[in-house]
Each structure stands twice: as C-alpha cells, then as structure tokens.
Design a protein around this nucleic acid. Structure first.
Lengths: 191, 191
DNA sequence: TTAATTCATTGACATAGAGCAAGGTTTAGG
DNA sequence: CCTAAACCTTGCTCTATGTCAATGAATTAA
C-alpha cells in the first residue's frame, strides 16, 4: 500500500494517525490511474467522490454560454479535490473535473467519507481543513479578479504555482486568469 | 432574551435545540448595537469574534494599493459573519468589517465558539454550514467575475440581493461588482 | 517519422469600461 | 431646519484587453 504514504503524511499534519485508523483509510480509498483529458466529473452529474491527487493534475471548470471553458481551479499533487458544491449539496454539478495530464489518485465515495468524518476525528479534521482551505483559496481569487490587472494576475500566478506555464497549456492558464490566450501571450513578454 | 429568536431559528434549521443548549448559547453570545460606519474589525487585527446579524448590514473589504475599497461581501440580516480567514488561521486580517447602517448583532468570542463547535453538535453543524455556505458563495462570485460583464453582474446582483440599490450606496455596490460608480450609474439605465 | 492537429505568437483593429470634470441631488449632523 | 459634505449622473476622452486573421511552433497519433 505504498500509494498511501502521501495521504498519511497529509493527514498527519492535521491529526495523529494510529494503525487502526490507517487500516480504515486503506479500506475506504481506492487507487485510480487516469489518462490525459479523462473526466472525473461531468456537468450535470452529482459529485459522489472525494479525490486525493498522488501524481499529475486536474482542472475544474464550467462551460459558459459561449462554449468557453472557465477554469476555476488547478489541483496539483497532494491536494484533496472534488466539486465541493455538488458534494455538499447533492445537486448536479455545474462543473467538469478533467485531467490535464496522466494522473494517479485515491478516491473515496461520499457516503464512506462522510461516515469517516462523523466517526474518525482525523477525517473530521481533514474535511474541516478542506473547507477552510477551499474557502481561503477562493477568497484570494476573488480579490485577484477584483483588484488586479492582467499582468499582476500573471505575477500572482507565477508565485502561487511556479513552473505552471511549462506544465499546463497556456490556453488553460489564460482561462484560469480570466484573460484570452492572446493577452497572456502578450503579457508574458512584459514579465 | 428575545434577541435570540432569530439565532435559534437559524440553528434549528440545521440541528434541533433543547433548552440546555439554548442556555449555553445565551451565555456565550453578547448583544451589541453599532452605528453606521462603525468598525467591527480593522486591517491588521486578528478576528477574534463571530457575529450574527439581527438587523442592519455589514461590508467586508480590503483597501488596495491605490487606496480603493474592494468590497468582497455584503452581510445582511440572519447571517453569521466574520473574517473567516483570520478567524481560522489566527493571522492578522487583511480586511475591514464595517457597518453600512445602524446594525444590531450578537457576537461570540472565537475561543468560546470553538469550544461549542467541539462540544455541541448543533454548533459543530453551524460552523460546518458557515464554511460550506461561505465556500459556495465565493465560488459563485469567482465565476461571476470570470464570466460576466458589468451588465450581467448587475443583473445577477439584483436577483441575489433584491432592493440592495436602494439600501446601500451605489458607490459601495459598484465596488462589490468590481466596476466604477460611473459605470454602475450608466448600466443601471440599460436595465 | 511524418502528417495532422492543436497551440502560441503577433499585427491591426474594435470595444467595454476607466478616468476626469462639471452639475445637480441627496444625506447627515449640528 | 439648514448647510456642508457626500453622492449620483452624464459627456468626453483614453486605455487595457478582446477579437480576428495569418503564420509558425509544438504536440500527438498513426
């Protein structure tokens, strides 16, 4: 079960783990390997899983009325990710979750996860931390849109996700920044 | 303790309350009346309270490098509000919380609140719901900025907060929408 | 490896929204 | 109730970013 190392490490930063709890975790999560562009969730489906990324990356996005991809979030290694809104409410997702590259992950069904949240303090802490982190990230992003122009958003991105431009197609990065690929291409030269 | 009616109602939508729990709530929250423009939190302070609004409204904002107010959120009646980021992390707030009008609220110190979160399932549920709601709201707002132009943002606002334009100065509404008051004034005529 | 596709760059032009200035209106507090 | 201050509106101009088109580079699949 060497796949579980990164997950244990993640959880242990929040709450101590004993062998019994580790066993329940191993029984509850499933390993999965997906290829580039494969979907974990499509618009209209209810998000029934919580994912932990071991290798690779995902993007979460919505298709707007013009058919454009609006990317809300890039999820990289050692992050929990799901469409929390759909996961929480049980309503159909408005978002897609798709792999940017070949990706390895662990996933846990919602019902199993919520049962662990209720019964294992470590996982209660994980869920709380997910919500807190997701919230803080969203809030930063709001101010980024509200207060920064294209160049400053790019600067912010490069601090937050160093090396992302060489890892993820610029077209997707532009969507994440809320600008066109043309503008991204131009502002990259202005540093 | 008639002030507590709205708070009980709020909590009871999430989790049943008995008299014993109500008593602990009454002992833990403090009633406060504040005047227009009074601050509940200033930049640099750590947010040590959680507020429940009984009457009136607050705004949460940040001052950008040009000295402009960037409003992230309007909190109206029957909402819990605090600077969750600072509340969670214990780090100094980058935001101000200020009253838009004469406002009545109940507040609870962070330490007391967290103790109730740990020990009263009803309040654990309240905190979880706060985080979930705050997250969902933020996420909507990201897509609003990423995908909508000024007119569509205004339309969205009028659905989400009907009557807000007659209640809160347009200057503040414009900041919330991420546009200038000039533009807001102009687009109001385009419906 | 090559052909087909997708992606990035760049120039010319278009446009939403910003910034400034001036005037009229509303609000607040003494 | 009256005055000062804050707020809203509107015309004019400016600018950042979008749009379109053309070309070249990189990636992908066969």
């Amino acid at each position: 079960m060497k796949e579980f190392g990164p997950l244990y490490a993640y959880i242990e930063k929040l709450h101590p783990l004993n062998e019994e709890v580790k066993e329940r975790i191993v029984k509850s999560f499933v390993f999965k390997r997906i290829s580039k562009n494969e979907f974990l969730l499509q618009e209209g489906e209810v998000c029934k899983f919580n994912y932990f990324i071991l290798k690779g990356s995902l993007r979460l996005y919505k298709i707007d009325p013009k058919g454009e991809e609006l990317i809300r979030y890039f999820a990289l290694e050692n992050k929990f990710v799901s469409n929390l809104t759909s996961f929480i409410t049980g309503l159909p997702s408005e978002e897609f979750i798709q792999a940017n590259e070949k990706t390895e992950l662990l996933y846990i069904p919602k019902a199993v996860f919520l049962e662990l949240v209720e019964n294992l303090p470590a996982i209660n802490r994980v869920y709380r931390n997910m919500l807190e982190k997701a919230y803080i990230t969203s809030q930063k992003r709001i101010y980024q849109f509200q207060g920064l122009n294209a160049v400053d958003r790019l600067r912010w991105l490069l601090e937050e996700y160093p090396g992302i431009l060489s890892r993820i197609p610029n077209r997707l990065v532009a969507s994440y920044l809320g600008i066109t690929p043309y503008t991204l291409s131009r502002i990259k030269s202005e540093l």
